[in-house]
Simulated assay, not measured.
Amino acid sequence: MTKAADTHKPLIEQSIPKDLETATFAMGCFWRPDALFGSIEGVVRTRVGYTGGTTENPTYWMLADHIETVQIDYDPAVTEYRALLNIFFSSHKATQEAWKRQYMSAVFFHNREQEGLVYQAKKNLEAQSGSKVYTTIYPYRQFYLAEDRHQKYKLQRRLTLMREFRSMYPDMMSFINSTAAARVNGYLYGYGNRERLQQEINSFGLSATAQDMLLDKLEVPRVINCGS
């Protein structure tokens, strides 16, 4: 049963399970990966930030040895970590070395199961491609949230849509953690398709005008390769 306190939320967020798992990936600049994973069924929350370095409290302009990273919370009953890894490796050029540490390919595993799966996935890709895979594998340690302007990047630049999201989510953290915002940002980048969008658009809590705008703004996605 939906709690009374949650009835103001979009329909897509009224039945989020408690038992979520987390995945942390780096695959070039983090705007498009945020949209890519935000579009995946079973992904509940996305956020972009910095990890993998040794300095405390990095910022975009003082990143030091950290890497641009996307972190997601997902429902393991809907999508598995193995499937997320397949999306990770198929959506950027892991066989091409990044020109800068900030944009390198990396996976940060959260437990032993994830560790085993990512090493196997990397080995499989090297065997299939016949090339070196430059993805670095690290144990997850700490994630620093990126500045507000980087979160749900394309959605924040659609002012009409953002006015409605600001009404639903007055504070930035609730916006960042919004499943509806993650989905809409994904569609704005071209992930998903019109048929799927039409099936779930009513669950985002948007007005008819905003829905029409979203349907009109679908783009064709490109391969993520911002770090080359």
Rank of each mutant, 00 (worst) to 15 (best):
Q71P: 10
G186K: 05
R196E: 14
W61C: 07
L125A: 10
Y119Q: 15
A182K: 03
P17S: 11
S207L: 07
R47N: 10
P58F: 00
E126T: 03
W31E: 07
G52E: 01
Q156P: 12
D212C: 01
T22C: 13
D171T: 02
I16W: 09
I137Y: 02
Q102P: 01
Y153I: 08
K132Y: 13
R163P: 07
F175M: 12
M172E: 15
F204D: 00
W99V: 11
T7E: 14
Y74C: 07
A98S: 14
R112H: 14
R32K: 08
T95Q: 14
Q120C: 00
F30A: 08
K217P: 04
L85H: 05
Q120M: 12
L11H: 06
E164W: 00
M27R: 06
E68C: 10
I16H: 06
G53H: 04
R112S: 13
F143P: 09
D19M: 01
M1K: 14
P76M: 03
F89H: 01
Q142P: 03
R149T: 05
F108C: 04
N86D: 15
A4P: 06
R196S: 05
R183G: 02
F108Q: 02
G42N: 14
G53I: 00
D212N: 10
R166P: 12
S91H: 14
G52C: 09
K217E: 15
S90M: 06
D65R: 02
A64Y: 08
A121C: 12
A35H: 04
S178N: 10
M104F: 04
F30H: 08
A98V: 05
V43C: 11
V70K: 08
T135I: 06
T46S: 11
L125K: 10
